[in-house]
Design a binder for these strands. Structure first.
Lengths: 232, 232
DNA sequence: CGGCGCACTTGATATTTGTCAAGCCAGCAA
DNA sequence: TTGCTGGCTTGACAAATATCAAGTGCGCCG
């Protein structure tokens, strides 16, 4: 892999503190690849041969069963995915596909496990990352089980607004049909849910969302850090 | 804490390989407590002061939002809960209450973090445990998003049957209303779902379930290791 | 410029799920 | 025994959600 990318990978919390020799050794076996949009990177059920790091672009994690499918998460730069499968040397639970042109680092899983076994600092960094991911899924589980689809959408918009800088107007950065899947509903229902939020001051124009009355929307959505704050 | 309990705790994967001095040091600060049924052990949002280990009995992990509540998991001996919150030194995401008379070990979170920082073997054991938990939640997420309530119940019964030894007839070991909550439905709907499985040979008598035609039920449920096998 | 193609929207309808109220039944205490 | 309690079930109804079938609007390409 070109050393050019070392610094940005090294900057990830997962790799930032480990011994340099170990980092170099991981990188030696890794390689970078550019993928066009809509390429399936991994399929659920396959053995976890590589830990993936998204350098640019974005990746959809999804799953399929009995003819249905659902989006579980979106991975954005710079972060890793399928860490848990790599560590447990177990099959992938989710499939992954690029949403746009993406540059992705592939690190052989056996290298990751080997370094994990000898580098306590790396092991601890993995713990921190896994704990973060675990808590994120629990939050998402609570979102799904405790809220109606309208409430999920309202809270999603508030989160996205925050991510986009907090202004009254912002862009959705996912396709609506994917958003519907992430929120656990059909595209048709997402359309209706947007209309359902109109009484709370939400206006939609294509991918642009405007929140007319912040307080009103929040009164309806009741955002909660134990569900919506993905930083803890 | 009475040394009496040391061996059973030590036998947990989480603690089995760590340095003895570190284990002793963890145990010195820990204590065992007996709780009656229906006692709330922790409340979501509280700081994570203790890592909990269930020695006997069982514990319900649940969450509340806006007047609704849902069961997320049941913890059975011998295992730990809220490991992720302890590691991240973050607030609990779930509340916990005893379902029956239970004996529980409380290990101060700061001790766990301190040992975690100096014992690489312990850190690696935590990684393995967290990765397992993480994958379990992902599976549960897929179950919720990809299956109808009838399919969820059918697959739950097949899993429970396996846990109970695999016989055609077995006991439910949770209250039906809790089961309903775990499966993401109302108790009324669970009743109807049981009736809905009658055509596939499922008979219910109180807490006893009989599966008349294994193949028939499996043909309907379509169990999948990437959702239903909690061992990987 | 015209006409696809594709995502999204809309309306009508069916299905699923939740809610409310009542009844059933086993377990238990007086 | 009697009467109560609490969990479970049932039925009638309401609400939420999915499905199916058009329709709309926009970008893209010939």
């Amino acid at each position: 892999m070109p050393e050019l990318h070392y610094p940005e990978i090294r900057a990830l919390g997962l790799f930032s503190d480990m011994a340099d020799a170990h980092f170099q050794s991981l990188m030696r076996g890794a390689y970078v690849q550019n993928f066009p949009p809509q390429i399936e990177l991994i399929a659920e059920g396959e053995p976890s041969d590589f830990l993936h790091v998204v350098l640019s672009g974005s990746v959809d994690l999804f799953s399929t069963w009995n003819g249905r499918d659902t989006s579980l998460a979106t991975v954005r730069p710079i972060s890793t995915f399928i860490l848990a499968a790599t560590i447990r040397n177990a099959p992938y639970l989710m499939s992954a596909r690029t949403l746009e042109k993406s540059r992705i680092v592939l690190i052989p899983s056996q290298d990751v496990r080997a370094i994990f076994d000898v580098d306590g600092i790396f092991a601890r960094a993995i713990v921190t990352e896994l704990a973060r991911c675990y808590r994120a899924v629990i939050k998402s589980q609570k979102d799904l089980k405790l809220r109606t689809s309208l409430e999920r959408l309202a809270n999603y918009l508030l989160r996205q607004q925050k991510r986009a800088g907090g202004g009254a107007s912002f862009e959705l950065d996912v396709e609506k049909r994917r958003l519907a899947s992430v929120l656990g509903m059909t595209p048709e229902n997402l359309s209706r849910a947007f209309k359902g939020l109109r009484p709370y001051g939400v206006a939609v124009e294509g991918t642009r969302i405007s929140i007319g009355d912040q307080a009103d929307l929040e009164r309806f959505a009741r955002p909660n850090p134990l569900i919506d704050d993905f930083s803890t």
